[in-house]
Each structure stands twice: as structure tokens, then as C-alpha cells.
Design a protein around this nucleic acid. Structure first.
Lengths: 247, 247
DNA sequence: AAATCCAGTTGATCTGCGTCAAAGAGCGTC
DNA sequence: GACGCTCTTTGACGCAGATCAACTGGATTT
């Protein structure tokens, strides 16, 4: 996911309209065709955009705001399986019911394409299919990276992993390098972090406090985080500190 | 992953050569082009096929045997992130170093395509790109399904989840429906199961014993498993018993 | 048939994280 | 400025699963 966001922005930062998710090269012809089948929808923070199992007549991408993909068991246990940031793609050509809940965690604007026409467009536009394949492979890598976090890391390492991912993604969005102290706002509540990490919110809170006490991070209020030394944080995450992520 | 395997076999069961992974419709023209760039490699049980970080000059698919995708931390903790069965695809067009270890758990035959020519073929054959996208999306779904298992399920539920996935996949391969008792051999050691589930091998062993004592499964020797009632097993897995998987 | 090996089982104990409970902190409303 | 609301922190305690260790059974070797 990280890699996808970066490459999209590298290629398309000056794209006049918001089809970055499917338009890596801003081909005017393709954009025109996409324009013809697009529409915008907005959702408020906390609102559920799609319920798992619902019929889903569109695919689309996030224009602004943040959403989460979650799975829930009958007894209420929930696991977040993805975090959707601006330019990330939602939905799956070739399937018509949703497999996950999609929830807006902030106010959010989505750019939607009606599924049928989008699929037809994709069938005659190899470039879009390639782009989508590339993005899907990136997401698969991110999911597998996350399996290691969920299966084998301690609570402290999990928190450090999440913070370092958010920090690096933030850094890549804002073009500043990954050297020097980094500051950002957590886009998630403690509960959402717990759902992402397979922990309880109490454990998340405790581990954040512990990392703060040990000087790995600084907190201003409850959301604003400063990372004085990313290398240190990545050691705490159990990653080797030389970057880790493959692109 | 499950869904991918099923659909491949539905469409291509009589495919004369082993390109099922990329040939959903057995187009003779495409098969010929694939033939021109393919070669076979065999590996013995226990052998590492690819080391994470290695340069990888090919993509390919499993012809026979079973392999696993694993990630390892510096201190040795390992997490399995995928299970490769016959017809599953390995490798990623557009990237040249491997992100995971690929290990043969049985003797295995792989059908490989040199990466460069494969990418060129893909660029001028939209159908192959679509097929690959479809398979990648299935794998992404499987990975996300697994995130719920790793993050939120108990040890007993994890074991039941793994057994029910293997059982259903096995049933779909052997064409017999999912009714009546099912019998299969575990393709994994207890340690490999532990690496898949984020547990220790002792816990795996204990939970298998417990499921056996409770009559959810039967064991003949250490590997041969009988599932008298798949619905019951799926309840133990915490899934609703009506099938679960989306296709 | 004794020796070795390896995968698996089972037991005893320890501990990291979950659970339950209470209190604090920020913020909008009356 | 007191109230209610949500998010967060902190404490006390218990338990599921990890850890350490001994043992079993089958296959292979000598």
C-alpha cells in the first residue's frame, strides 16, 4: 500500500483531476472515458460506506479523508484488514458483493465509477488493468507484511510497527525525506489501532505510554506524535532499520 | 487462493499442458507463446527455492507438490504468509528481487517463465494480465481472511480454521462435494502449521489433541485427518457454517 | 535387536496480554 | 461552570498460550 501511494504520487502529482488510482500516466483519452462514468460521494466520520455482503455497484478511489476495511466475527471481534488513504482504490472488478466493511474514520470524499462500464473500459484499456494489477500486488505485499506483525510480534513491536508505517507514509506524502524528527497526527483512535494490531485498546494505550516513557516517541495531546529517531523506532518494531520495505 | 484454485480447475481441467495458472481458457496461440519461454525445475522436500532478497529472474507456477511462502525476522521468528499448491502462481512481474522465502515442503515441480519475455508477453496479451489480476485479488482476499485468523482467533479456532480451509480446498480439487465425511493428509508438519497460525508447535499439538478428544476430527497416525462434520468444524473455527468464502 | 533420529505428545511452570474497573482529560451543550 | 459525552489512561487480577523439559513411537541405520 505504501509503495502504491508513493508511486502514484511520483507519477501523477500534477494530475488535474482525481483519478490517480487508475491513471498512472494521465492519458487524456482514458481520463475522458473515466470522467464519463464517474460521480462523487461524501461520507461523514464514523459512517459506514459499505457493509460486508452488500451488493456493490461501483468501484472507486478515495479523494480525501481516511477509511478502514474491517472484518467482523459474529460475536463482535473485529480485525482491520486495510487502511484507505487518498488515491487508494476500493472494490473489485468481477465481484458484485463486498467482502469487508468500509468505514469512514474522517469525513471523506470518494470518486466512484459504476462497475459495469468500468469493467468494459478496463477490458479495452490494457493500461488500466496493468495499473490495477500493480496496485493489487502492492496491497498483497502490505497484507503479508501485516501477517508477520499480527502473528509474531509483541504488543510493543506492533505499536512501533504501526507508528513507523504511518510515519514513513506521511513522510513520502509530504516529500520531506526520512531524516530528522518527524511529526504527524495519528489518523486512528486507540480502538482502531487495536483493531488493526489484534490487541485491546488498553494494551495499545499502555504500550504507547511505555514508548513515550522510554523516549522512543513524544506525544502532544493524544494524537500528535513526534518521532525523534526513526531508526530507533524501527529497531523497536523488530525490523532492520535500513528501510525494510520493498518497492 | 481457494477461489483461484477452484476456478482454474473448473475452466481448465482438460488443459493439455501445465499453464493453468495463466491460461484460464487454453487459447492455443497463448499457450504456444508460453511454451516458448518456459522451463521446468524440480526441488526436493525441505529445499529452499528462493531466498528473500535474492534476485529473481523468473515467475512461474507450481505443477506438483507443495511450497510455502515465509517471512523471517532477524531473531528467527517466522511467519508463513502463503501456501502454494499446484497451479498457484509465484513471483511478481515488475519486481526483480524476492520478498519472501519460498520453501518446498514436499518434492515439487515448478514451471518457470523467464521474467523479461513473460512481461513482454503480458504487455501484448491483455487476457493474461486480467487473469493475473483476478488471481492476485483472490490471494489478497485470502491474505485478509488470514489477518482475521491471526489477529482475533483463539488457538483452537485457528487450528479449526486451518483444517477447514485445507479440507474445503481438498474437496474442491477432488470434485467430490462438501457433504459427508472428508479424509485428507495434512500437507504440513506441526511446526509449519504453527508458523502459519502464529502459534508454537506445542500449542498446535495440544489443540489438535483437544479437537480429537471432542470428536470434531479423527486422526489416523499423525497426518491422516477425517472430518466427520464440516459444519461442526466451521463452527469451531468461528465462521458461520454456510460456506463463508466469497468468490 | 540395539542405537539413533525425528516428529509429535504431554506435563509443569511462567508471563504477556486480556479483562474488569475506575478515574482523568478534552469538548461541546445547557 | 456544571453536566454529559467520548476518548484515553492506569491499576489489579486472571488466564491462554509460551517456555522449558521429559517422554513416546515409528522409521532408518548399524
Amino acid at each position: 500500500m505504501n509503495a502504491a501511494v508513493m508511486s502514484l504520487h511520483n507519477k501523477c502529482d500534477d494530475c488535474p483531476i482525481r483519478h490517480r488510482a487508475v491513471c498512472a500516466h494521465c492519458d487524456p483519452q482514458e481520463l475522458e472515458e473515466l470522467d464519463a462514468i464517474k460521480y462523487y460521494r461524501t461520507f461523514e466520520a464514523g459512517q459506514t460506506i459499505i457493509w460486508s455482503g452488500d451488493k456493490m455497484g461501483f468501484v472507486g478511489s478515495v479523494v480525501s479523508g481516511i477509511a478502514t476495511l474491517t472484518q467482523t466475527m459474529e460475536d463482535g471481534r473485529t480485525q482491520m484488514v486495510g487502511l484507505l488513504l487518498p488515491s487508494d482504490f476500493v472494490g473489485r472488478p468481477g465481484r458484485d458483493s463486498a467482502a469487508y466493511n468500509v468505514v469512514a474514520t474522517t469525513n471523506i470524499v470518494m470518486c466512484c465509477f459504476r462497475k459495469k462500464p468500468f469493467e468494459e473500459l478496463m477490458a479495452r484499456t490494457p493500461h488500466i488493468a496493468h495499473r490495477l494489477l500493480e496496485m493489487t500486488l502492492d496491497e498483497l505485499d502490505a497484507a503479508r507484511e501485516w501477517m508477520l506483525v499480527l502473528g509474531r510480534k509483541t504488543a510493543r513491536e506492533k505499536i512501533a510497527s504501526l507508528l513507523s508505517i504511518i510515519a514513513r507514509r506521511d513522510a513520502s506524502l509530504s516529500q520531506t525525506g526520512v531524516t530528522g524528527p518527524m511529526v504527524f497526527d495519528l489518523p486512528l483512535t486507540r480502538e482502531a489501532m487495536a483493531d488493526y494490531l489484534g490487541l485491546t485498546l488498553e494494551t495499545v494505550s499502555r504500550q504507547i505510554s511505555a514508548l513515550k516513557k522510554d523516549g522512543v516517541i513524544h506525544l502532544e495531546g493524544k494524537r500528535r506524535v513526534t518521532i525523534p529517531d526513526l531508526g530507533r523506532l524501527m529497531e523497536e518494531a523488530g525490523d532492520d532499520s535500513d528501510g525494510g520495505f520493498l518497492v
